[in-house]
């Protein structure tokens, strides 16, 4: 368990926490269609972050309030981070929005936006 911490990364879009190798092998289980992390070390570097805080083990995303609050309800069960530090490249954000997804920054900036909205 101990050695795991260093190689773990969190997806900046859905905040799921996986090992870098898992991202490489299978991509992000939630955002693969947009981010295309599988087999792309560059994309992993760009779209995932090693700096994250607050692990959430999500067993039942549908019924969990935590998931609702974190906007994870539609994601697969797994481990997520409460906060992911780092910024997605702008083109990725654009891609997300082209796909009709609203990018929720996971680094703490979104709160004000939401309040404003």
């Amino acid at each position: 368990m101990a050695g795991r911490g260093s190689r773990q990364r969190a997806c900046m879009v859905c905040s799921i926490v996986l090992n870098a190798s898992e991202f490489y092998k299978t991509g992000c289980p939630n955002c693969e269609s947009v981010l295309g992390l599988r087999n792309s070390q560059d994309a992993i570097q760009e779209c995932t972050s090693q700096v994250f805080e607050g692990l959430v083990m999500l067993g039942d995303p549908k019924s969990s309030w935590v998931a609702k609050w974190q906007r994870l309800s539609d994601y697969v069960p797994g481990i997520y981070a409460v906060k992911v530090v780092g910024q997605l490249p702008q083109e990725i954000i654009d891609t997300l929005e082209d796909n009709g997804m609203k990018y929720i920054p996971r680094d703490g900036t979104s709160i004000e936006d939401d309040v404003a909205a």
Binding site: S33, K68, R71, G100, M101, K102, I111
Partner: peptide, 19 residues
């Protein structure tokens, strides 16, 4: 796919204080 995205966008439009 649209289902995910709609879910995302739907929830994202809900301000967090409604959550």
């Amino acid at each position: 796919g649209r289902r995910t995205t709609t879910a995302l966008s739907n929830s994202s439009f809900v301000p967090q204080n409604l959550l």
